[in-house]
Design a protein around this nucleic acid. Structure first.
Ligand SMILES: [Zn+2]
Ligand SMILES: [Zn+2]
Ligand SMILES: [Zn+2]
Ligand SMILES: [Zn+2]
Lengths: 170, 170
DNA sequence: CCAGTTATGTTATAGTATTACGCTTGCTAC
DNA sequence: GTAGCAAGCGTAATACTATAACATAACTGG
């Protein structure tokens, strides 16, 4: 499964699966899936797009779950550390993990037109980078692999001039 | 030359070479290497570290070359577009290109202890990522490959607990 | 010189993230 | 049970990163 996010798929199964896997993972490791954290994960899972911390905060505060930035950042930190979400560095935004449960190093394909983000696996790319790092005597702890460009849908749309919306909240 | 930045080297030759290559490149393409832009490049070249836009701005303003954020951001944009510098997304910071003149997609090795950054070549990793993207029907326009970890020097320093300084401004 | 373009100066504002501190909640040890 | 502790949350304040908008100045080609 190379890149979840662009292909049409059963998204509610996608969401339900991720939520139950996250729940199980928390139970197994003694992590606490609190209301704010669960809701934050749900918000991220709703779309295969990266959301800013303040987008999350907006929703949380509408729902009475917290009104200040640290609420969102703390929940996001938890989700990222637990492996339920990733930070997309090129966007300063966050996205739910699409391969939840697999221990992996993500690679993102980011569409600059519709803002959707697909998560691929980097195993191949990472091997080569590891080689280069080893040669330099560098020990890698975390890798960021992100590619910006145009997704299949947006390549045909009049050369991707404007802003196109996709997903569950158009 | 896999990763310039960690190995000891003749750094003033490194700086001079980059400056003259940049100058030549501007002459060839009709780009304008203005005082602010040249000085910004010099500041970045002084260290194999990423500097924030406001670090740059601080130096520029001390020298009477501009006091407001857009001054630094415009100079950095120029340098990045011209290929003389790169943005390190994981740090929201900027670094002079270590392979100036080569048309390349950079990969960065970022030391979390001493903050030095080495620039390696991604050609191998990029090929694999291209394959994955093609399979998904995605067209890549720009790639970001960054690895955080510990550089050779910092691996031995008591497990890299504190803040260590390195480079020309210790 | 003149018009067009590119660069700079400056103000204001938007967007992203963290520090700090006090309160509450849930767990464990007694 | 309840005292003590650790983790999580509420809130205010602040730091850091980046851009929009508009006026002025400098360079370019005719
Ligand atoms: Zn889905
Ligand atoms: Zn798209
Ligand atoms: Zn050097
Ligand atoms: Zn480079």
């Amino acid at each position: 499964m190379p890149a979840i996010g662009f292909q049409p798929h059963d998204h509610s199964a996608c969401v339900d699966g991720a939520l139950s896997k996250a729940q199980a993972h928390c139970a197994a490791l003694g992590l606490r899936m609190t209301p704010v954290r669960r809701r934050t994960l749900e918000i991220l899972l709703a779309e295969h797009r990266a959301l800013g911390a303040y987008d999350i905060l907006g929703v949380l505060s509408e729902e009475g779950l917290g009104a200040q930035p640290p609420v969102a950042y703390r929940a996001l930190d938890f989700l990222v550390k637990a492996g339920f979400a990733h930070k997309v560095e090129a966007l300063n935004a966050y996205i739910a993990c699409a391969h939840l449960g697999a221990d992996h190093t993500p690679a993102f394909l980011i569409c600059r037109a519709c803002k959707s983000v697909a998560e691929a696996d980097t195993a191949p790319a990472k091997g080569r980078l590891d080689d280069a790092a080893r040669a330099a005597g560098f020990v890698i702890e975390r890798t960021v692999v992100e590619a910006e460009g145009l997704c299949p849908d947006c390549q045909t749309d009049t050369k991707a001039e404007g802003t196109k919306a996709k997903g569950t909240t158009p």
